[in-house]
Deep mutational scan, measured.
Amino acid sequence: NKFNKELQWATWEILNLPNLNEEQVKAFIDSLRDDPSQSANLLAEAKKLNDAQA
């Protein structure tokens, strides 16, 4: 389904953001699992944090 694909994509993207530490990655992945419908928003937040920590 749509959420499953978005969840998989967001998870992959977050795992590959180079500037997030392990705790941050875990927190984003946990949030994705808690509410897959928020995957686009969570991915945007993760990318923003990744850029800020570059």
Results as ranks from 00 to 15, higher is better:
D30L: 14
E22N: 11
I14F: 04
E45R: 07
K26E: 06
I14W: 01
E13F: 07
K2Y: 05
S37L: 07
K26L: 13
P36T: 04
L42M: 09
D51G: 08
W12L: 07
I29D: 01
L7H: 06
W9Y: 14
N41V: 13
V25S: 12
N50E: 02
V25A: 13
N4G: 07
Q8H: 04
D34H: 11
L32K: 00
E22P: 10
N19L: 05
S31P: 02
F3P: 15
E23T: 14
P18N: 10
N16D: 04
Q24R: 02
Q38V: 06
E6S: 01
E13L: 07
K2L: 15
A27H: 13
N4Y: 09
N16G: 09
A10V: 14
A52P: 02
K47D: 02
K48L: 05
N21F: 09
A46Y: 03
A46N: 00
P36K: 02
Q8L: 11
L15H: 11
Q53S: 08
D51Q: 11
K48N: 11
D35N: 14
D34K: 15
E22S: 14
K47W: 09
D34S: 14
A10S: 05
W9Q: 13
E13A: 10
A54N: 10
N50Y: 01
K48A: 10
L7Y: 09
D51P: 01
K48P: 00
A44D: 13
L49Q: 08
L15M: 13
E45H: 08
Q24G: 00
L32R: 00
Q53P: 04
Q24D: 04
N21P: 03
A27W: 14
N19V: 02
E6H: 05
V25M: 07
L17S: 03
D35V: 05
N16H: 14
N50A: 06
K26P: 01
L7G: 04
K26S: 07
P36F: 11
A54G: 10
F28T: 01
D35L: 06
K47E: 03
S37V: 06
A40L: 13
S39P: 04
W9T: 08
K2E: 15
L42K: 06
N1Y: 00
A27L: 11
I29G: 02
N50Q: 01
K48W: 12
A27T: 10
K48V: 09
W12R: 06
I29A: 03
E45Y: 07
T11V: 06
W9N: 09
L17Y: 05
Q53A: 03
A54T: 12
S37D: 04
S37I: 04
A46D: 00
N4I: 05
Q38H: 11
Q24A: 03
N21K: 14
K26D: 04
S37Q: 09
F3D: 15
Q8S: 04
N16L: 04
N41T: 12
D34E: 13
F3V: 14
A10M: 06
D35F: 05
R33A: 11
S37A: 06
D34R: 14
A27D: 09
K5Y: 14
A46T: 01
E23P: 08
L42A: 05
D51F: 10
A54M: 12
F3T: 05
N1Q: 03
L17P: 00
A27P: 03
N4D: 15
D30G: 12
K2I: 15
A44V: 12
W9P: 02
L20I: 05
F28S: 01
D35R: 08
A40W: 06
D30S: 15
D30M: 12
A52T: 11
L49W: 05
F28A: 03
N16A: 10
P18H: 11
L49A: 07
E13G: 06
D51M: 13
D35I: 05
Q53F: 08
V25R: 15
E13M: 08
V25L: 07
W9M: 12
N19F: 12
I29F: 04
K5T: 14
F3A: 04
A52G: 10
N41E: 14
N50P: 00
N1D: 15
P18W: 06
N50R: 01
S39A: 04
S37W: 05
E6F: 12
N50K: 01
R33V: 07
K48M: 09
Q38L: 12
K47H: 12
P18D: 07
N16K: 05
Q38S: 13
L49T: 06
D35P: 00
Q8D: 05
E45W: 07
P36R: 03
P36E: 04
K48D: 06
A44W: 10
L15A: 10
I14N: 01
N19S: 08
I29L: 14
P36S: 05
W9D: 09
N4R: 02
E22H: 12
S31M: 14
L43Y: 08
L43Q: 03
K5V: 14
L43E: 02
A46W: 02
E13W: 07
N21M: 12
K26Y: 10
N16R: 08
L43K: 03
D30K: 11
E23Q: 11
L43T: 05
A27Y: 09
I14P: 01
K26I: 13
A52M: 13
N16Q: 14
N4L: 05
D34M: 15
N50W: 01
N21G: 11
D34L: 09
N16P: 01
T11R: 07
K26R: 06
Q8Y: 07
N4P: 03
F3Y: 11
W12I: 10
A27R: 12
D51Y: 13
A27F: 13
Q24L: 03
D34P: 02
P36L: 09
